[in-house]
Amino acid sequence: MAGPQVEQEAAGDGASVADRDAAGRDVDQTGERQVITTAYATVVVDDPEVAATDLATLTSAVGGHVQSRSVHQGENTDEYRSLPSASMTLRVPSDELEGMLADLADLGDVREVSQDSEDVTRTLVDLDARISALETSTARLEEIMAGAATSAELIEAEAALSERQAELESLLSQREHLAEQVALSTLHVELTAEDLPEVTADGFLGGLQTGWQALVSFVSVLVVTVGVLLPWLVVLAIPAVLLLVIAKRRRRRNDTPTNPNNPEPVPNESA
């Protein structure tokens, strides 16, 4: 019957543990390490955009590629100032990484270089052993399906096979990703322009420049002050106008005669 055989194949790849340990010892003895390397560098250049283009060309020449690239043109205003810069993430063959780091000196002044390494030898050995065991198990389950005598046995074998195939595809994907990380190192490069000191004029020109800057600052402050006070002046002007109108009306009332229907008697001239 196929039932016990299916259960045996679906029990896992416990028998491969010894194989993984043996493979790991073989790698330790041969010294064939699998290492993922990531490097970081900061370079001061004359023109970051041009340097980024040159670095991309150099990367392609050694068989690598640009994974990401961004360029900042820089700003220089009274409120904010930033230098031009460029950021790049490169993938280069692992055996070309040291040469790439050395070639950065041709672009400008290398200010900082750091490098991190992660040994994934054991992980790859484990993946290879599990993949091998799953491939063997998958082949046996396919044979069991071909010889299944009943529908129940066939359904049970198909379920076990689907589970094994999904696990196998996941492991193969992990293996491929790690192998790609080992084969191509990652290099992060920051390219920035030189921060040149600001030159100030002396003597008459220096005084003229200082005076002009002071005038501009004064006008700016004056404009801001007027802008702040203007809404208040409008609000205060309305009651002031009303008070003025009321005062004029009262003054007119005070200037009119008390009883206009009884004028004062005119003196008799004949008397």
Rank of each mutant, 00 (worst) to 15 (best):
S217L: 11
E79R: 13
G24C: 07
D13L: 09
L104E: 00
A214L: 13
A129T: 06
L187C: 05
Q165L: 10
Q34N: 12
S117A: 15
A11Q: 14
A105M: 00
V234D: 11
A139H: 11
S114Q: 13
V266A: 10
E167P: 03
P267R: 10
A41I: 05
A214Q: 15
V234P: 05
D119R: 00
G3H: 14
T256F: 09
N261A: 15
A240S: 07
H177M: 09
V71K: 07
V35N: 02
E198A: 01
V50M: 12
S70D: 14
S117G: 06
V62I: 13
T210D: 14
R175I: 06
T150H: 01
P197N: 12
L127H: 03
P93C: 08
A10K: 10
R253M: 08
L97S: 01
W232E: 01
E49D: 13
V189S: 03
H65I: 04
P239H: 01
L178P: 02
R251K: 14
F204D: 06
V113T: 02
G203N: 05
E269Y: 13
G211H: 09
V221F: 15
V125R: 00
R20C: 09
L244N: 08
L101E: 07
R91F: 09
A237K: 01
A105F: 02
T57D: 11
K248V: 12
E142M: 06
V182T: 02
A11P: 07
G64F: 00
A183Y: 08
A102W: 00
D126W: 01
E198S: 02
I36G: 02
L208G: 02
S185D: 09
N262D: 09
R164T: 03
T77M: 00
R25I: 07
D13M: 09
S173Y: 12
L161R: 14
I144H: 05
L83S: 09
R20K: 10
F204Q: 04
V120F: 01
E198N: 00
L161M: 10
V245M: 11
S85D: 14
T186E: 15
G108P: 04
A146Q: 14
G24H: 07
R252K: 13
T210G: 08
F218T: 11
F204W: 14
V71I: 15
E269I: 12
Q213N: 15
V113K: 04
